[in-house]
């Protein structure tokens, strides 16, 4: 149970890092398995305080990550609890919402499938879900490996700190 409580903050840190990383690198994160993965924060972004106060902010906008409201929430110590993401590999485009505390995916929008018969269509959609989970899980693994690396993490942490304090460019 204690391990799952730890996982809770790792999920929030993951989405906050993903936001930082996608903004820093022009919207793409490099993955070994899938190559350059495009990640955009869209439509809705919820943040919550990491202190005991549990104050929250929800920003609804076309690009909520670029709003002053969302960046201001970061500056006051909030981290991402749920995010609506556009995720694209070289071949596919997906939309999904991720709950940082439970790592649950909701509102997943898959690319259109070709399958004619219902059974084929379901099979095709399951393969697409496999691909989406593969992409998101790999992004999370990239974060976790950096997070656990005592050599790499301090510089990344400082980069996120400076980004949090900076004003949005949009």
């Amino acid at each position: 149970m204690a391990g799952e409580m730890r996982g809770t903050f790792l999920g929030r840190e993951f989405l906050t890092w993903l936001w930082f990383e996608s903004e820093r690198s022009g919207g793409t994160v490099n993955s070994e398995q899938f190559g350059a993965v495009r990640v955009d924060f869209g439509q809705r972004l919820s943040l919550q305080s990491t202190s005991g106060a549990r104050e929250g902010s929800t920003v609804k906008a076309e690009a909520p990550g670029e709003t002053e409201e969302a960046r201001s929430a970061l500056r006051t110590g909030k981290q991402v609890t749920t995010a609506r993401l556009f995720v694209a590999t070289a071949d596919r485009e997906f939309w999904l919402s991720i709950d940082a505390d439970t790592f649950t995916f909701s509102g997943v929008k898959l690319p259109s499938v070709l399958g004619g018969k219902d059974d084929n269509k379901v099979d095709e959609r399951l393969l697409l879900l496999d691909e989406l989970e593969g992409v998101v899980d790999e992004l999370y693994m990239i974060f976790i490996k950096l997070r656990a690396d005592p050599q790499a993490w301090p510089d990344i942490r400082e980069g996120i700190h400076q980004w949090v304090l900076a004003q949005p460019t949009a």
Binding site: A2, G3, R6, F9, L10, E13, T16, T50, L74, R75, T76, G77, Q79, I144, R147, A148, P154, R157, E158, I160, H161, V164, L165
Partner: peptide, 18 residues
């Protein structure tokens, strides 16, 4: 072993100086 090692990681507060 690596999963267990994560239990030593402390929560970050990115808005604060470390």
């Amino acid at each position: 072993a690596d999963v267990t090692a994560l239990s030593l990681v402390e929560e970050e507060h990115f808005h604060l100086v470390r």
